[in-house]
Design a protein around this nucleic acid. Structure first.
Lengths: 226, 226
DNA sequence: TCATAGTTGATAGTATTACTATCACTTATG
DNA sequence: CATAAGTGATAGTAATACTATCAACTATGA
């Protein structure tokens, strides 16, 4: 991916924090250390206590930015889906041919997020590992009250919409573009998870190319007109 | 589904309990009430304390059957996948034509588990709701040490294997039958979840038939030879 | 029929976690 | 220079996950 952009600003829904963590250096440290701790110790072991200690601060401070662990999770997950959407948008920009557009979109889905060095407070590569390994979205969803769900799911929904749009470009008569889009996104996540943690259950290796081929095949075959 | 069988015995891996809960009436009550509490209050709110109270017993007793909440979850999840596999096996029994066999298998995947009245200690319909709604598998996986994973995943892996086998019957040259099987299983679960909790994100309604059509289309198109 | 092992229930206690309240200190701003 | 906003330290509560101990009951088999 190109590294030309001066600064990438990912704006996260205000409902997902008490106070925007990106407005202060403590806030940025909270984000950075959260990802770091979860990446090494797992979601389970992650507590605000540990986070505060890593920060050289106290729980009180953390609670000033996030109501609780779940809200912080949602924030991070939103971040992930936003970056993924940005990546998809970027890699399909100026590509007019529908087939190539879809192929590029699937390629974006099937390779890990790289660290965008721009944002020194969040390591996207680590975030990718977390989302893959820790069933992040599931965790987040489970803890969500109905009303909050849409707030969180905006980022995810936008990614789905974008892919669904590209799907329709390829076959405007296709009946369930959203369902297919969600399937492709889920499959990409899930296969990465399997090849990392339960390789016995899948016949895909860890190479992004095998995954890309699978997604490509599912998508293009499904879109063929009779 | 037919209700002819005298007794269906679902045998769960011994690693998933300290002591087989089906060997005693307290054990059976533990299973029954767990499903019931999780179905009404959610995974989050479910504690051994509450379970014990519902049983008219104490935490101590529960701990004699399950090491902890997670192990109990794994037990239930295993149960779910075992019943699902049984359902798939049953609905494809004596069907020789590969296409029909695959279609029947996908049909099994796309409709909810019904309660098999035989097992009065576990309501399969409720279990289905839990697994769909609570990202059960994700929860379970997240809490699993590597070694235990395979123990739990046996039931799930068997279901994958079975479906992968049927896939190969339809196209023996297909390269990644396991990955396709896992995709179909995941998609069935995920779409049920979406239509229940985030209908905005999908264009499938709650009718099993729409889901079945999607799975059918993905599978059969993917399997077409060039 | 009696001894014994296995199963259960009651009580109690510990460590950790999630979260709240209060107050004092520091820094940026106008 | 005054004020407000942000931060850190201390303390405390309620709930949770889990363990230990002991007494009571029950099924068994010698």
């Amino acid at each position: 991916m190109q590294k030309l952009l001066g600064q990438i600003v990912i704006k996260i829904d205000t409902r997902l924090s008490v106070k925007d963590p990106l407005t202060s250096s403590v806030g940025q440290e909270i984000i950075r250390h959260s990802v770091s701790i979860i990446a090494t110790e797992g979601l389970e072991q992650f507590t605000f206590k540990k986070l505060a200690t890593a920060l050289g601060s106290t729980e009180t401070t953390v609670y000033r930015y996030f109501q609780n662990k779940q809200q912080l999770m949602m924030y991070l997950a939103s971040w992930y889906w936003s970056v993924m959407e940005w990546k998809m948008a970027f890699s399909t920009a100026n590509v007019e041919v529908p087939q190539i557009r879809l192929d590029k979109a699937l390629q974006a889905l099937s390779s890990p997020l790289e660290d965008l060095k721009q944002t020194e407070y969040l390591n996207e590569a680590k975030l990718h590992d977390i989302v893959i390994s820790e069933s992040f979205k599931a965790f987040v969803v489970k803890h969500l009250a109905k009303k909050e769900r849409l707030g969180y799911f905006m980022a995810y929904a936008q990614l789905c919409e974008r892919l669904a749009g590209i799907i329709l470009l390829n076959n405007k008569n296709y009946k369930t573009p959203k369902a297919l889009a969600a399937t492709l996104i889920e499959t990409s996540q899930y296969q990465m998870f399997l090849s990392k943690h339960l390789p016995e259950i899948t016949d895909l290796g860890a190479e992004p190319d095998a995954l890309h081929k699978l997604l490509h095949q599912i998508a293009f075959k499904a879109l063929e007109e009779k």
